[in-house]
């Protein structure tokens, strides 16, 4: 995949960010969305937070996060909901990150109960741990974007089905295209 990235800044309140992200998803093609800006904000507006978290988690294209400066609740939530994160200069965990609303659900979704327990224990976790856990890397976003090919969006939808449906139905979901190809 070309390293074209659709950049948006996570500045502004939760409603503004949800709107900006929704607009980015409407761009043609399958280029990844790169979210940067101020990731230190606390999560305040439950409705808007739920909206942008669902958009990020279910986006039919790769979503990457560029982490620079302090990582607060918004940064943590984004890192867990997105497909990849880059740690830039000055990236550091802000106080209170482990009290991020939704942290347990996001962590379980991303890496299962073991990851959730590791993050919820909080105090001793560092950004190096995030790298070791596969949640973030120190490569530039263009390099990270190269990991996602054009078919990632479709596979991500199958991943969602696997997370949200019982095994047999998730399998049927992913096999549907095959079955319909056979029938055609």
């Amino acid at each position: 995949m070309a390293a074209d990235l659709i950049g948006i800044a996570a500045d502004g309140d939760d409603a503004a960010f949800a709107a900006a992200f929704r607009k980015a998803l409407r761009a043609r093609g399958a280029a990844p969305v790169l979210i940067g800006g101020d990731l230190s904000a606390a999560l305040r507006d439950a409705g808007s937070v739920a909206a942008w978290l669902a958009l990020v988690a279910h986006a039919p294209r790769p979503v990457l996060v560029m982490c620079t400066g302090p990582l607060g609740q918004r940064g943590l939530a984004l890192m867990l909901a997105a497909d990849g994160a880059c740690l830039g200069a000055g990236a550091a965990l802000a106080d209170g990150w482990h009290d991020t609303p939704g942290l347990a659900a996001l962590a379980v979704r991303r890496g299962g109960p073991a990851l959730a327990r590791a993050l919820l224990s909080g105090a001793s976790v560092t950004l190096d741990d995030f790298v070791a856990l596969g949640l973030a890397g120190r490569e530039p976003p263009e390099a990270l974007a190269q990991r996602f090919d054009a078919g990632f969006g479709a596979r991500k939808r199958a991943l969602r089905a696997a997370l949200e449906l019982p095994f047999g139905e998730a399998l049927a979901f992913d096999l549907t295209r095959l079955a319909e190809d056979d029938a055609a």
């Binding site: 479709a154 939808r157 089905a161 449906l165 979901f173 549907t176 295209r177 079955a179 319909e180 055609a184």
Partner: peptide, 18 residues
């Protein structure tokens, strides 16, 4: 689907053929 409101979920592009 989890609530039973619908009977199956399929990829959008395969819906009609399915």
């Amino acid at each position: 689907r989890r609530a039973g409101l619908v009977d199956a979920v399929v990829p959008a592009e395969a819906l009609l053929a399915h």
